[in-house]
Nucleic acid binder design. Structure first.
Lengths: 190, 190
DNA sequence: CTCGCATACTCAACTTGTTGACTAGGTCGA
DNA sequence: TCGACCTAGTCAACAAGTTGAGTATGCGAG
């Protein structure tokens, strides 16, 4: 029931096709709401029949036609209503954490490799987020931006994503050193 | 396919009933893998038929009987195999972030209230995690613990939970001040 | 002595999310 | 000019997750 709201929040940035949304989700919303393109297309259809969004078919030369979706008044209202509701606590699923929890009786080397990979991935995300942030701010300082901009929501969620990934990097590094020492101890005990 | 692994990782701490697991999940695993009790019971049944765990019925006086599950050799092996596999990136779903993203065209006061609530909730989690950490460490310093303990996995995942919640608290506080200033600006514009 | 909470589950119905395959034209580099 | 990748989707099948209700007993507070 709540992918809808994420989609509507994304549509506040302007009309978009399913394909656009898939990319937009991947870039910024994925940080707190992941989904597959298929989920998006299915949900968009339902939202259209529910009157929350409306589609305008755009004929394109040299590209397949696309359907540009935009929020209707009803959609905006539903989104506002959603912001007023109490929200369920965060749901997280991280296989890597499960693997770390079981690392002591599993494949230590493989877990370390996964940690290294995750660390790199998080670092890559950080640079992408930094770029996005610079783009949002433009020439302005953060102070100026917060004073002038009509929307601060996307900026705040971006900050959350940034600090989450930075935290990830720190934790991966820490866990790696701990597991490395452990490996050394097990290889050459006492 | 992966709740299984979380359950098996939890069973490394020793045999447990579905009810125990539900509580254990709530206390520590929930941090990176949330699920409802129903999911647990269903999955436990399947895991039993798959031979990953085995159940021993414990007759209790003055309490309903319970089924104590423990890992089989096959289960341990499956868990080790899982740690060796590559892992899917984290999946997060946070309605609050969706609401913050849409806050500018939604109910600002309600979003601020949600942020305050989330902040308190995170603070409560932090104290619980701190207690768990103190319990894990016992009389030892972290150094001593990491050198002696047979399992460091649960400690590392606990650290991740702690830093995640601390980060949550910081971000909520930051967002609140930003939204408060914004509210002030909108109430009394230039 | 009753109300509500804790233990310890089960069942059924429903909604979400995931995977894989398929269509079909366009562009770009080797 | 061949293969690979990008745009812009659709369809079907399945796996996973959520919700709500029901069962039964015991314990302690008011």
């Amino acid at each position: 029931m709540s992918l809808r709201n994420a989609v509507m929040a994304a549509l506040l940035d302007g009309a978009a096709s399913g394909y656009d949304l898939a990319k937009a989700f991947d870039a910024s919303v994925a940080n707190f709401w992941m989904c597959t393109p298929q989920q998006l297309y299915r949900e968009l259809d339902r939202m259209e029949t529910d009157g929350l969004i409306e589609a305008r078919t755009v004929e394109q030369e040299r590209r397949p036609n696309k359907r540009l979706f935009s929020l209707t008044a009803a959609g905006l209202e539903a989104l506002a209503a959603f912001t007023a509701e109490p929200h369920k606590p965060t749901a997280i699923r991280d296989e890597l954490l499960v693997a770390v929890m079981a690392a002591d009786s599993g494949d230590l080397e493989a877990v370390k490799a996964s940690l290294r990979e995750r660390k790199q991935w998080a670092e890559a995300k950080i640079t992408r987020y930094e770029r996005l942030k610079a783009k949002l701010l433009g020439e302005r300082t953060e102070e100026e931006f917060l004073a002038e901009a009509e929307r601060v929501g996307p900026y705040l969620t971006l900050l959350r994503g940034l600090s989450f990934e930075r935290d990830n990097v720190r934790w991966c590094a820490r866990s790696l050193t701990v597991l490395e020492r452990r490996g050394a101890r097990l290889d050459a005990p006492t």
